[in-house]
Design a protein around this nucleic acid. Structure first.
Lengths: 315, 315
DNA sequence: TAAATGTTGGCACTTTTGTGCAAAATAAGG
DNA sequence: CCTTATTTTGCACAAAAGTGCCAACATTTA
């Protein structure tokens, strides 16, 4: 490749990219056949004579999305940037907002949308603004919290969602964890619960939070757990939960007494849902998130940069 | 323009320009209508989110070409870069090469090609390599130099050109300046000269050098001038010559005794030629070149950067 | 100088992009 | 909550760009 040739390529590239000539115009101007111009432009790109830079674009973030999407076979992923020295509250807020926008974007008129518990999900509902009016149905995916936390009741989430999106919502009249398998089964099989069960089988969208380890948890529903429950979870090395269902680091669901007493959509159900969206962030939750991703239950993840990086590190 | 929006534009631009997605693919990936993607890309360019740089391309040089081309209504222009500290010999050589390549590019099988005198033109012939074989006719545009400079005879140029391009050449058997108008007219009207005169009327291409001021001239033909000629030229403020025809700074051709004794194509003839190519460089010649350009006789200029800049400065 | 190798021209045809316009959706104010 | 801008969608159509192919040409190499 001699120098004159290179200069010619550069000239063509200049006319095309900077002066916005069409290839036909360049062809005419330089008396070179148009298709040759097309090929020259390709060559100029290949040779690095043309360098295109995208400003305001965090390539790392995008690569992170691609990598995680690939690694965990996700259908969608959304990673919001992390800014240094930002408070957790603010980080959570931005994550909620991102989740809210995402829901607004994917919801369709007659969708059946399930919500589980999670502080991000609560925050998310507060950030929906001017959502499209739909005829969607909003349904809880888990039972409620203990009576002392009633202001964070999952019913509140679906109710607000329905109010804002204009559809209808179903309530769940039971706490997430019951005293015995017998009662749990009774509720689940009861007449009034059958609507919810049916909807669980036909979910279009499911939004779930992800709970971190037991130890450093500020969870609003885990006060439902008995001391024996906690003991058992420790013993079996529970690493986190989703929809009140605990699992260990290997993505093994911890079955047993607790799960039998729990009112929640079975995680396996979520595999059939076309949009199963996990929303969570924080370094302490990263292992839980990773384990859950590995289970292949979610097909969409919404998190932030630092969390995503951590997930990748420990994978 | 909020930040999220900007990030989206950047993402689209990234996928398009860096990852070579088509707009349709991006549209599918992001669930945004294709035409919107097209518009987003335009916006991203407008906002400077996409910045495209052409390496190895001297924008100044190109602008210089455009400006001069415009200013002097040229059909074509070729400005080669000037490198600092390069010797004049080397600069001349590069210019000759550029001119040679240019001729190779524009010559057509049956063209009639005229050559005038000029060191660059001599150098140019030496740098033709593997030219296309043509059936062209090469003809001198001026008479020869004085007998003492016979190795630089214009006949040599056309002869070599014909040898290399494979066509035929005509010789001129007279010096450029004769002793009297009477002799000049006699030669021009002679039988053997009629071929040349006819070709002069049907030139397809004319390559001419441009001579600078009398004072600092190393010209190889000006020894034909008499003292009176020189005196007159000084008096009438000759600024340079082309095809042995002198003109002043205003582009006025200096008629009179000298011109009447000169054997050369009339400059006005060159206006009809579809490619009248002037090849010259150097700061001292800039005023001559400028004056000649202003006359509108050339339609193509081949020069170098420093000369072009000077021409522009004094315009 | 002849054969081999690479480049451009020329053409038909496909794919990709750009654009104008009206309808629908979204955002912004009052 | 309703009204009014501003965007986005959706579509049809026009313009521009890309591709495969082959022949002509040019450049290297043997």
């Amino acid at each position: 490749m001699n120098n004159d040739k290179k200069r010619l390529l550069a000239k063509v590239a200049y006319l095309y990219f900077i002066e916005d000539y069409t290839q036909a115009e360049i062809s005419k101007e330089l008396n070179i056949y148009r298709t040759t111009i097309s090929r020259m432009l390709k060559q100029a790109k290949d040779l690095g004579i043309v360098s295109i830079k995208i400003n305001d674009f965090d390539t790392d973030l995008f690569d992170l999305e691609l990598t995680l999407k690939e690694k965990f076979q996700l259908k969608n992923i959304l990673i919001i940037p992390s800014y240094p020295k930002e408070s957790n509250k603010s980080k959570d807020q931005r994550l909620s907002l991102a989740a809210a926008l995402y829901l607004k974007r994917i919801i369709k008129p007659k969708d059946i949308v399930g919500f589980a518990w999670g502080s991000i999900l609560v925050g998310m509902i507060g950030q929906l603004q001017n959502p499209v009016k739909t005829d969607a149905t909003f349904v809880p995916l888990v039972g409620g919290p203990s009576p002392s936390n009633s202001q964070y009741h999952v019913n509140g989430i679906v109710y607000d969602a329905a109010r804002q999106f204009g559809g209808k919502s179903l309530f769940v009249d039971a706490a997430a964890v019951q005293e015995s398998k017998y009662i749990r089964d009774g509720i689940i099989n009861s007449q009034y619960f059958s609507d919810i069960r049916r909807l669980w089988a036909h979910l279009d969208i499911a939004f779930v939070g992800i709970g971190g380890p037991l130890t450093n948890s500020a969870s609003r529903w885990r006060d439902l757990l008995t001391d024996e429950d906690r003991e058992l979870l420790r013993e079996r090395q529970a690493i986190g939960d989703c929809c009140c269902t605990f699992f260990d680091r290997h993505g093994k669901i911890l079955t047993g007494s607790l799960l039998n007493r729990t009112i929640a959509v079975p995680l396996d159900n979520l595999r059939q849902v076309s949009n199963t969206v996990g929303v969570a962030r924080s370094l302490t939750k990263a292992p839980s998130i990773k384990a859950l991703l590995a289970m292949g239950i979610l097909n969409t993840l919404i998190t932030d940069e630092e969390t995503a990086n951590r997930i990748l590190e420990i994978s």
